[in-house]
Amino acid sequence: MSLPEIWAFKHEGRGIGIRHHQLILPSVVCSTVVSRRIAQEVGGITFAHQHGCAIIGVDVSGIDDFFIALASHPNVGSVLVVGLGCETTQGNELTEKITKLTKSTEYLVIQESGGVEGTVATGAAAARELAITYSHFPYPLEELVVGIELSRDVEIEPLLTELTHEGIKYVIISEAGGSAKHFSMLMSQKVQLIISFPDGNQPPSGFPLIPVINVASDSPLHQAISGEFDLQFEATAKEMVAKIISTADHTKTISEQNQSGEILVPRLVRSV
């Protein structure tokens, strides 16, 4: 019997990715609509957020660090940063910081690219140019780092034992705060895949760059929407690991199919 392996992408400066996403990264709330239009044209991934301007204090570097973590995530193949021009988070500086770590990153400014339509057209062209086609190669399971998101009490030992048995690394987040906060923390730790155990009163959720496997509890809400979960509450540790391996090997999770889940960007200080 041969050892299980996954087909993945080697993203220079970013790591081994189990997805090959192009990220259209708005550096400010004002460029989120333009970013979405570009992403729709080129099949990229983007997200709406409310940050990047009128931020002060620790949030200025905090937002930079968070965007850099997104742009250098292993599941990302290339990044197009879209700025407005007059915001606090200056896209050109952000782009410089990203390109120090990774390649395949470009930057566009709405105020200097002829406005909305001009930026969508230029941005789509730039994004296509950036989207270098990578071949995927087989990698051993040791290349995989799984994020375990715990928002409820779960007997997690069997899963950990099974993961270790397969040689899969993992990171667990179980501190206060919901799934969305945990997903952002796990993203910053560069996990390529997440298995989530949401609170019984919370729906399953996703994260735009990272496949999330949702495991149901026996709560009334989860039972009412059981079809929205990738695994039911009876799932064994072996079944969980099998799902992790098939997801790493390109099977889409339900939240990926639905493209659901917004990114919660960590903030500490009010806007000015």
Binding site: A48, A180, P203, P204, S205, G206, N258, Q259, S260, G261, E262, L264
Partner: peptide
């Protein structure tokens, strides 16, 4: 009224 419903 929940972020998971934003795409919908």
């Amino acid at each position: 009224l929940h972020q998971a419903l934003s795409t919908a």
